[in-house]
Amino acid sequence: MQYMLLIYGGETGLSSMTEAEGKTMMGAFRAYTEALDAAGATVSANRLQPVANATTVRAPGGVVHIHDGPFAETKEQLGGYYLIEAPDLDTALGWAKKCPAVGYGSVEVRPVFAMPPA
């Protein structure tokens, strides 16, 4: 099964980090990503730019609205994701626990909907 590890955290906390703190965090994420790769669990992974650079599109009734900013203003923002392959939720939760993001914010584990074969 595939699981999406959605990384949430307060962007303000990130921007107020010292350079050394930022380096430590980046190092931890790099090591984590390498561990996932080495285990053959990674499907894809990305860090996202801050919500300041987000643009949201809606088209209620067919009329397209494009606006600056995220889908919803929240205290914690989606900052990145790991899409992983795992045999079960417990293995996915095991990976989530090791993710450095749990020390800064939270990791939401979502099973990927298995599409019926066409």
């Binding site: 795992a86 079960d88 939720l89």
Partner: peptide
């Protein structure tokens, strides 16, 4: 079922 919880002793 849908989240794929492992059926084993933790």
């Amino acid at each position: 079922r849908e989240a794929g919880v492992a059926f084993r002793v933790p």
